[in-house]
Nucleic acid binder design. Structure first.
Length: 636
RNA sequence: GCCGAUGUGGCUCAACGGUAGAGCAGCUGAUUUGUAAUCAGCAGGUUGUCGGUUCGAUUCCGACCGUCGGCUCCA
């Protein structure tokens, strides 16, 4: 006799133990069809696996995140099965579900081509039609080792060897395909409905570059075709917004072969850049930051003192000045320390908030460079706050508010993460605890939700990271607030306390945009190149219909320019449709079309990039409206 | 750095073992135009770099450089 208690509390009895699927079939056909996986007594459970005699049962469909992972994990098995059938000499590594899909890593002699992908996809579709049951099977460690050794699956053997003593070792079988797997899985291959293989890439076994290079196939799967189409449309949209493409089209920046990872900003790009800095300086002035500038290259002994030489040397560019080794700065902190040391500091001076828009150079690996997102030369919107230990909370709270004010201007949402003490770190346990608690208290007092990343702090202190969500819901780490006990120590920073004794200040490093370059890239994609008026390189474009309107257009342009609006007039000998098409392509927010009617009325026909023709406007009123939008940094 | 793909005029792309072609952009001229491409003409490339094979390479091979997709998500 078996008892099943359902989510709604109802109870069902069976003469003998049953599977979740059997229960589902009793309940409704639809449920049985859509259930991906079950939760039995709180743990994920295959829908075709017999439950204990007494079970609390919940059935999960694709909409449940855990079930979705199971579904995709099963798709990765399906892919592995297809690959193994098509390429019998393959050795399997791992194949987990990931955020938007799944992958599987294969050790295969021949590189996989796009045609191979098609073949694999095709074979997968056949396997789905065969609707093979997916069965779980538990083995002893010896059995498992023996089995996978015989199969020549070296990676699986290694995985088994690394499993903890008490782990239950399970395998899943579908047809002739068998894979080591904790599970759970969907009941049969026929339950996997919509999937698509997306790309092949290299990856190291266990992500370690000393290990063999494997071939990874990425794919994704969904319960419905429409969901896959939606996902593909999103990828398409992301491609259209690619900042590298828009950066070229809008003439914002470029990267030369002669300076990989070192962007060249074009005049249009510099306009946006300067507007970003203008906002930044305004907001920092409000919070009484003082701006400093420190040198591009500094003596090697400074980097030894700061600890960068020991921890960061392989990323640093070296040079020589009069036979003395110097290094190009990869961070701004040591320079800020040098500034602090230029005077005696009193407790009355603290906190000292020094900001620096510092251009730093870091030797990133060649394969990781990516437009403005991953570069070798970039400007950090850095700041170092020197303070009393008692000021930590207030200062951190101030930075959080500042970040919030600035991100709001762009309509960017964000999430917070707190990273705590890593295993390899400097400073005492007590210092860490005090600092970490201070950060937590700030977040809790503010009622901010945050995620904790245990052990993910910097070696010199705990930190709070801000993850921006752009309009496609992609996440980017930008702002960070890091407490640092190391640098004040290493540079022997002091202040004179109320007691007349010398004390050590606490330091916070923080950035808001992070790398201005990367933030710019994120904004390009976030706005799809259609910047809000205050950021737009050209805010108003005046388009005469014919030559006889040129004089009037020049007058209007001069007037708007005088008022501080970035305006150009397209006086080329072209038809109006052509000029409009071009201005739209440049994503200019406002176009003023001028023909006989407008000259006569002393007005202009306004066209916006988003709404098209909106009719005649009074120039003075239009000017006021644009100026207001610029001043308030209105979003589109 | 590693794996794979890739590199043709400013941009997007075509072609080929016998010394490259189109569209857009540019320039000149005509047209004076009413809300997303007017017409015609001209000009523009030592086919990423360096080597090799060949009578001959941009095309085949190799190295290098750059670019693109990846290299955390642990059965």
């Amino acid at each position: 006799m078996a008892v099943v208690i359902l989510k709604d509390g109802s109870r069902r009895e069976y003469p003998q133990p049953v599977t979740p699927l059997q229960v589902a079939e009793d309940l409704s056909k639809r449920l049985a069809k859509e259930a991906v996986v079950a939760k039995v007594n709180g743990a994920l459970w295959d829908i075709n696996r017999v439950m204990p005699a007494e079970a609390e049962l919940e059935l999960l469909d694709f909409d449940n995140p855990q079930a979705r992972d199971v579904y995709r994990h099963s798709t990765s098995h399906l892919m592995a099965q297809a690959v193994q059938e098509l390429y019998p000499d393959v050795r399997l590594a791992i194949g987990p579900a990931i955020e938007d899909g799944f992958y599987y890593d294969f050790d295969l002699k021949e590189p996989l081509t796009p045609e191979d992908m098609q073949k694999i996809q095709g074979r997968m579709e056949e396997l789905v039609k065969e609707d093979l049951e997916i069965q779980r099977q538990v083995l002893s460690r010896e059995e498992a080792l023996d089995l996978f050794r015989k199969m020549g699956e070296d990676y699986k053997v290694e995985l088994i060897e690394d499993l903890p003593e008490d782990a239950e070792i399970s395998c899943y079988r579908q047809g002739d395909f068998l894979d080591l797997c904790a599970g759970p899985h969907v009941g049969s291959t026929g339950r996997i409905r919509v999937f698509k293989l997306l790309s092949v890439a290299g990856s190291y076994w266990r992500g370690d570059e000393n290990q063999p290079m494997l071939q990874r196939i990425y794919g994704t799967s969904f319960a419905k075709k429409s969901q896959l189409e939606e996902h593909l449309a999103l990828l398409e949209e992301a491609k259209k917004r690619d900042h590298r493409k828009l950066g070229r089209e809008l003439d914002l920046f470029s990267v030369s072969e002669d300076g990989p990872g070192m962007p060249i900003y074009h005049p249009n790009g510099v306009i946006v850049w300067n507007e970003l800095l203008k906002l930044w300086r305004e907001e920092h002035a409000r919070d009484r930051y003082m701006e400093i500038r420190t040198p591009q290259i500094l003596n090697k002994r400074l980097w030894e003192r700061s600890g960068h030489w020991d921890n960061y040397a392989e990323n640093m560019y070296l040079t020589e000045v009069d036979e003395t080794p110097f290094a190009l700065k990869p961070m701004n902190c040591p320079g800020a320390m040098l500034w602090y040391l230029t005077a005696h500091r009193s407790y009355r001076d603290l906190p000292l908030r020094t900001a620096e828009l510092g251009l730093v150079h870091r030797h990133e690996r060649s394969g990781t460079l990516h437009g403005l997102m991953r570069v070798r030369a970039f400007t950090q919107d850095d700041a170092h706050i020197f303070m009393l230990p008692s000021q930590i909370e207030a200062e951190v709270a101030g930075v959080i508010d500042l970040v919030d004010r600035i991100y709001k201007v762009f309509g960017l949402e964000y999430r917070l993460e707190l990273s705590t003490r890593p295993e390899k770190c400097m400073g005492t346990e007590e210092q860490w605890e005090t600092a970490t608690n201070a950060l937590m208290r700030v977040l809790e007092n503010k009622g901010i939700e945050y995620k904790i990343n245990p052990g993910d702090g910097a070696f010199y202190g705990p930190k709070i990271d801000f993850h921006i969500l752009d309009c496609l819901k992609r996440s980017w780490q930008c702002a960070t607030i890091q407490l640092d006990f190391q640098l004040p120590e290493r540079f022997e920073l002091t202040y004179t306390g109320e007691d007349g004794q010398e004390h050590r200040p606490v330091t916070v490093h923080r950035v808001i945009y992070g790398a201005v370059d990367r933030f710019f890239g994120i904004l390009i994609e976030h706005f799809a190149g259609a910047f809000p008026v205050w950021l737009a390189p050209v805010q108003v474009k005046i388009l005469p219909i014919a030559d006889r309107h040129h004089e009037y257009c020049k007058t209007v342009a001069a007037r708007l320019e005088e008022a501080g609006i970035r305006v150009t007039a397209d006086l080329r000998n072209e038809k109006i449709g052509y000029k409009i098409r071009q201005a739209q392509g440049e994503k200019v927010p406002y176009m003023l079309v001028v023909g006989d009617k407008e000259v006569e009325a002393g007005k202009a026909a306004l066209r916006t990039r988003s709404q098209g023709d909106v009719g005649q406007v009074d120039i003075a009123q239009f000017q006021e409206q644009v100026l207001r939008e610029i001043k308030t940094r209105q979003l589109n």
